[in-house]
Amino acid sequence: MLPWIFIGLALFFGVFWFSGNAANILIIYVIGLTGMGVFLVLTSLTISKQSNLLKKAFETEKNYPPLLVKAILLFAGIGMLFGSIRYWQDVPFYQDQNFSVISGKPSSIDEYNSKGTVTELYVEIKGHTFVLDADMPQFPKYKKYEELLDKHFTILYLPNSNWIIDYKVE
């Protein structure tokens, strides 16, 4: 029964991860990502090799399904923990409001479309690529994204993760 408690806690932290990303709040995002990673690793370590529930779910008597589920959860959890390192490195910068600033005209811009609408812009300025989310209130208005190449961008971001705090398009 213990693995299911850890799965529940991983899902609980997954809500933090998702809401931190949606609200652009670094602290909630990094706590959710780390918590989810920890509890996925713990889940993978507590699933027994002879798990009858997993054998029944995959309709087999072999031990391959429990080992496969353990491996997937372990790699996903470790990946999340390694992915959270650069965000944890940015927490002191975030708390001290010591943001990096990059300013200038972009060298390239690409759109990401989902279901016919633009959801993100990939903007490259001075060798750094930033993702501007269309849900942000200051998202630039344009007819063709090529016209943004003539605009001046100012982006406040965190140095390790490139987490965008704020940006202006002039």
Rank of each mutant, 00 (worst) to 15 (best):
147 E>Q: 15
21 N>D: 03
134 A>K: 12
138 Q>M: 11
129 T>P: 02
69 V>T: 15
115 K>A: 11
112 Y>D: 00
142 Y>H: 03
130 F>T: 13
37 G>T: 07
140 P>V: 04
101 V>S: 11
132 L>E: 00
122 Y>V: 01
57 A>H: 11
32 G>E: 09
16 F>V: 06
38 V>C: 10
108 S>W: 02
37 G>A: 14
61 E>S: 14
117 T>I: 09
32 G>P: 04
74 L>R: 06
61 E>D: 15
42 L>K: 06
117 T>P: 00
49 K>M: 15
138 Q>N: 12
123 V>E: 05
45 L>C: 12
82 F>R: 14
117 T>G: 00
94 Y>E: 09
19 S>G: 00
105 K>A: 06
67 L>H: 07
90 D>A: 13
102 I>V: 13
27 I>W: 03
97 Q>A: 08
12 F>D: 05
138 Q>T: 06
31 I>G: 00
38 V>Q: 03
150 D>W: 02
57 A>Q: 12
19 S>K: 06
68 L>E: 00
32 G>A: 12
50 Q>C: 10
155 I>N: 00
135 D>Q: 10
78 I>R: 04
87 Y>W: 13
52 N>R: 15
112 Y>R: 14
147 E>L: 09
89 Q>P: 05
151 K>C: 01
108 S>R: 12
77 G>K: 02
37 G>H: 07
119 T>C: 00
46 T>N: 12
115 K>Y: 06
145 Y>H: 10
54 L>S: 04
27 I>S: 10
133 D>A: 05
59 E>R: 15
154 T>A: 12
25 I>W: 04
155 I>R: 03
92 P>C: 10
53 L>A: 14
64 Y>M: 11
15 V>Q: 00
18 F>C: 08
15 V>D: 00
14 G>A: 05
154 T>P: 00
127 G>A: 10
44 S>V: 07
41 V>W: 03
12 F>C: 05
150 D>I: 05
147 E>G: 08
92 P>H: 06
139 F>M: 01
95 Q>N: 14
18 F>I: 11
46 T>F: 06
109 I>Y: 02
109 I>P: 01
113 N>H: 08
77 G>Y: 04
43 T>V: 11
138 Q>R: 07
62 K>Q: 10
27 I>A: 12
33 L>T: 08
110 D>F: 10
97 Q>E: 10
123 V>D: 01
38 V>W: 01
145 Y>W: 05
58 F>Q: 07
105 K>H: 09
123 V>M: 02
145 Y>T: 13
55 K>Q: 14
136 M>F: 08
41 V>S: 08
82 F>E: 04
108 S>G: 06
85 I>D: 08
38 V>Y: 00
88 W>L: 08
142 Y>L: 02
77 G>S: 03
152 H>V: 12
71 A>H: 07
152 H>I: 07
50 Q>P: 00
33 L>G: 05
19 S>I: 08
123 V>A: 07
